[in-house]
Nucleic acid binder design. Sequence first.
DNA 1: CTGATTGCAAAGAATTTGCACTGCT
DNA 2: AGCAGTGCAAATTCTTTGCAATCAG
Lengths: 163, 163
Amino acid sequence: MSSVPQRRSLLDELASRGIRVTAQRRAVLEVIQEAGEHLDADSLLARARAHEPGLNRATVYRTIALLKKLRLIDELDLMHLEGEKHYYELKPERDHIHMACFRCGRIEEFTSPLFEHLKIEIGKQTGFAVRVVRLEVGGACRVCASPAIDPLKSQEDAETPLR
Amino acid sequence: MSSVPQRRSLLDELASRGIRVTAQRRAVLEVIQEAGEHLDADSLLARARAHEPGLNRATVYRTIALLKKLRLIDELDLMHLEGEKHYYELKPERDHIHMACFRCGRIEEFTSPLFEHLKIEIGKQTGFAVRVVRLEVGGACRVCASPAIDPLKSQEDAETPLR
DNA sequence: CTGATTGCAAAGAATTTGCACTGCT
DNA sequence: AGCAGTGCAAATTCTTTGCAATCAG
């Protein structure tokens, strides 16, 4: 939800690697950095155009690809709750789990030491060098799962995504 | 990799729920059931056409949607190693982790009691009723991560997907 | 200067949908 | 018989690409 600012800005990361900093990239990076939520390419474009009006959709996709390659952002599916878009967020200090409520569509995040242990175990047991981890969960959030909310209203199906 | 057959066939599952069993569905179910690997919609169509030549692509998608809704299969992305397709597998008795090697493209599976604990913890800590879990990992498999393989050949990038 | 980056427009990949026809149960 | 399921073709959604013009370093 609220994000702890990370040590170096995306801009600094690019510059320090000798990657060209253009006005377009600056606009996209800024939006990603200040985003309070998970953004897809389309909303990213819309917001970045506030900074850089002529910005093209293709440039957004190319910038996303760049940031992914540099492992500065993570790509999420959020259980495909709405369409097949991808969502992006700054790579966090500690990986977290994304939980998508099939009933109300809310996305929750959750971190746990167990998750960190699991990642370590994967490496130890299999020899696999873990670079990117994505753990997504679908189901019913606390509120939607509660049977006490409205006994008269028949419960919507929370077994399966909305669409 | 090799799969332990589950108690009831997909066909029985449908029939017992009063869902219509058509030749087309039978063909798709059979392919999913015997698949030794993760199949996308396209390969699913190709294989199922061996049983049911006229089978249409749309029917495959509709059948996949049905099985997903009934939670008889899981949908995977396999870190989008090749395109944005989805892959499908029978819902296993115990959820497993999918590990995708960015260098050689191999997919490994891994199960761990820690993973089960983590799922339980999610529910306990957040009140979220977990229905579907997808844990995917990207990186370098044991072989590709090994620095001893070929010291002369400069290592390919294993930090990031191939495409 | 000069190659990396961009915009544009078109193409591509994966999936979904409307509708008339077919075939389970 | 009746309605769920299917095929077909077109539409949608999301993303990528080729190429000429532009701009950062």
